[in-house]
């Protein structure tokens, strides 16, 4: 499109506008940064990535189980091992996610227009809980049989028991391997993009007079800043 070429010309196509808006919200160097603010220096910051890694193993082990069906692990030693990795990656996923949540709470990470990041994080936690619950129903063992009997009451009491029938293996299988993973995936991707777009929240009570910011102000004042080429503001 010629409209895209040359500075100053307006982009009119929907695609072009979408691209420009996306790039403005999340330029590549923000999406995949090579530096982080100096205050990003604590072990508490690794648990978000830990959750993502654990989710990766949840998905991979789940795919192997899906290829063989829910009853496979009862009859195959390898299947049982894969089932165990699925269980433990889920346990690790939740452990890391909860530590991540605690950390973000004590940092009040919703500050500075990051409320939606916090909200999508909580949503990811909630949807993951529902997904894990459907997984427990697919064990096709004594535990899942009992959960199917007991959990129906809460679901029936709120009127969703017919569409979320915990004793219907086929229905719950679809929730667990189609609908809910799509939801978890979408929410997690959105959450991560929001984190990257907004950057990591600065410390509480940080001020322009902090030495971490003062040097830069001096440089600003001295006029050593790069020219505003490509400035989007």
């Amino acid at each position: 499109m010629s409209a895209e070429q040359g500075s100053g010309s307006r982009i009119v196509s929907w695609t072009g506008r979408f691209r420009e808006r996306s790039l403005k919200a999340l330029p590549p160097e923000k999406l995949l940064p090579e530096t982080q603010p100096s205050y990003v220096a604590s072990w508490i910051y690794v648990f978000g990535m830990g959750s993502i890694a654990a989710l990766g193993y949840v998905i991979v082990s789940g795919c192997v189980l899906a290829l063989n069906g829910p009853a496979w692990y009862h009859v195959s030693a390898f299947g049982h091992f894969i089932n165990s990795t699925h269980l433990w990656s889920v346990e690790l996923f939740f452990m890391f996610m909860v530590i991540h949540l605690w950390g973000k709470f004590w940092m009040a990470s919703w500050r500075g227009g990051r409320a939606l990041t916090w909200i999508t994080g909580v949503l990811a936690f909630v949807v993951s809980i529902v997904t894990a619950f459907t997984g427990y129903l697919l064990q096709t063992n004594f535990d899942s049989e009992w959960i199917a009997f007991q959990a129906k009451d809460a679901l029936n009491a709120v009127g969703v028991g017919a569409w979320f029938n915990v004793a219907n293996l086929g229905q719950i299988l679809m929730w667990h391997i189609v609908l809910l993973p799509l939801a978890v995936g979408a929410v997690v991707v959105l959450h991560v993009l929001l984190v990257r777009a907004h950057g990591v929240v600065p410390p509480l009570e940080a001020a322009e007079t902090d030495s971490q910011l003062r040097n830069l102000q001096l440089r600003d004042a001295a006029g050593t800043l790069e020219t505003g080429e490509g400035d989007l503001s």
Partner: peptide, 25 residues
């Protein structure tokens, strides 16, 4: 055990010094 492990990891994450990447600028 899982809950204790989680709390211990959280406390360690707060207390253990983070191996600092080289600062820049």
């Amino acid at each position: 055990i899982v809950i204790i492990a989680m709390v211990v990891l959280f406390v360690l994450a707060l207390l253990l010094p983070f191996p600092g990447g080289r600062g820049r600028r």
